[in-house]
Amino acid sequence: MTEGKQKIKVPVMADLFAKGEKPEYLLWVGSAGAFDDRYKKVTRAFVKILTHLNISYAVLGVEESSSGDVARRAGNEMLFQMQAMTNIEIMNSYEVKKIITCDPHAFNTFKNEYPDYDGNYEVMHHTQFLYKLISEGKLNIKSDLFKNKTITYHDPCYLGRANGEYDAPREVMTTVPSKKVEMKRNKSNALCCGAGGGQMFKEAEKGDKEIFIERTEDLLETGADIIVTACPYCMVMMTDGLKYKNKEEEIKNYDIAELIEQSLEL
């Protein structure tokens, strides 16, 4: 048995298309996945999993642009529709049928809002994709890396309430041997991290406290060692919350993709 590091060359749609190849999935990286230092790590982790499992995929690379989710929710419908139609034109030119993304906001807008502009795709959030692979027996986790850890999960609003997906992420987490706890507000009653609807990019209005701190207190109440999220905004907010509470050393904040990446020792 040999072991070594292999360099991953992430396949780009334009290159594959030039060679006459058509991947099964488009991996939508998203602006946070491409630019936010913390979430870049999640993109890299998820790409490692895709590579490990020999999934046929490609990214748009420099042809990718904002999904428009935040523009729409902040009231700029004009900008949203420009983004949507431009993205759809590019995706349709590559005959994209299936999209995977780590961003619940992109997932929601592709799945529910792009069809209004002839963008019809089978859209999967990465937690749903991982769950599919697990149920098909293609992804097996034998690691006991987290065996003695207590893990809790924070539901992103745009995966949970917005699209009713509460089970896939939890099912994926059950394949990782560890102790699981729920926060007092979970699933459809989960508290928002505070970043959606444009809040990520502006100062919060005057109040008693920041929303992410309130949510971090929910987390601390559980006594968990690890909080797992599945959204770039939630990641930023929970990281800030842990810093604010001086807990960033004790409590780790992972995306589900990272939990799996570490369990597979990729």
Partner: peptide
Amino acid sequence: QDDRMLWADELYINEKS
């Protein structure tokens, strides 16, 4: 937008065979 692939630089995977 030209920097949208920088995240993929120097990306390695532990290959087990």
